[in-house]
């Protein structure tokens, strides 16, 4: 950990300006990821702006019937909110599937979205990593690939975004509200927040320097049934090998509408538009579900260590759709 200075933010605009004013400055809130990375010398901020006490810890009903979730709402509080549990159960399920109780008590909504990959090669400073040291190469590809992605990856990086919460939010059409250093605000779809690695894996989001997430807004709860299913090696405190968030209207006769998002397989929470389209257009039942998964997996990365994720995704989607289209 290199020496750094620290300040406690006094206001939104001041916080954004403080970070925008120094290229080596970073926001810190729960710190569950950033501090680990600082200890390992992977994040090396020279200045930290603590935004954890900013008045962004509320959950409010929006005028349109949706929900506005403050950036500083703790994961455990969000999961326990009765409005979330009743109207957005897929989000509550995803939150509770993430990390551990202790981490959820500390981790915040915005911090969860902006957490960095857990690729073990990213986490080892002795290994080449284009995300950590741009241009140094990727030592994960060709190595232990089990945790790597199959969709949206590039030859420069195949690391996945580790969040569960964000996958559910992607299925719920969440939007991100931000404040910039000049006090300007903007709103962007969650799908626009994270960038695919391409040739620049170190650039992970569309946020400008100092631009701070202030809230996540959820549109009114979609009709249909919701489910989050996370598949992992250990029953708790393990990242997803594959996860599926579904919001579905349908039954044995067919699926009328579907919003699907996948986790554990891509550099960002993966909204599965191709699968959604195939699902509503295709035949009813399992054959159609499988075709929908295949539509999303067309062109997915292959390899001896990751091929299982293709089948695992198909089967997990089948499970989620079985559960959400079951009569009654």
């Amino acid at each position: 950990m290199q020496p750094f200075t620290y300040e406690r933010a006094t206001g939104l605009r001041e916080a954004a300006a403080a970070v925008a004013g120094r290229p080596d400055a970073k926001f810190i809130s729960g710190g569950t990821n950033l501090i680990d990375l600082m200890k390992l010398g992977i994040e090396r901020p020279g200045h930290l702006v603590d935004i954890s006490r900013l008045p962004l810890a509320g959950i409010a009903d929006a005028a349109d019937g949706g929900l506005t979730i403050g950036a500083q709402v703790r994961n455990s509080d969000l999961a326990a909110d009765m409005r979330v549990r009743r109207r957005y159960p897929v989000l509550a399920q995803a939150l509770l599937a993430g990390a551990s109780g202790q981490l959820r008590n500390k981790a915040t909504t915005a911090g969860n979205l902006l957490q960095r990959t857990r690729c073990p090669y990213f986490y080892n400073p002795a290994m080449a990593c284009n995300k950590r040291e741009p241009g140094s190469g990727c030592s994960a590809l060709g190595g232990f690939e089990r945790s790597l992605g199959i969709l949206g990856t590039s030859e420069h990086c195949a690391a996945v975004h580790p969040s569960d919460m964000a996958v559910a939010m992607a299925a719920l059409d969440a939007r991100i509200e931000t404040t910039g250093p000049d006090g300007g605000t903007r709103s962007l779809a969650l799908g626009e927040l994270h960038r695919l690695p391409g040739e620049t894996p170190a650039i992970e989001t569309a946020l400008a320097p100092g631009e701070m997430i202030t809230a996540v807004t959820l549109p009114p709860p979609p009709s249909g049934r919701q489910l989050y299913r996370k598949v992992r090696d250990r029953a708790s405190y393990a990242f997803a090998l594959v996860s599926v968030a579904v919001v579905v209207e349908g039954d044995a006769a067919g699926i009328r509408s579907a919003r699907l998002a996948f986790g554990g397989i891509a550099p960002k929470p993966w909204r599965a538009r191709a699968a959604e389209a195939a699902l509503t257009a295709g035949p009813a039942g399992e054959a159609g579900w499988r075709a929908a998964a295949d539509a999303e997996l067309a062109g997915a990365r292959q390899g001896a260590q990751i091929d299982f994720k293709h089948e695992l995704l198909r089967r997990t989607l089948r499970h989620a759709l079985t559960e959400t289209t079951r009569p009654g």
């Binding site: 986490y123 002795a126 290994m127 190595g143 232990f144």
Partner: peptide, 9 residues
Amino acid sequence: HFVNHDLGD
């Protein structure tokens, strides 16, 4: 090197 080297992995 041992790839997974913490209690998370």
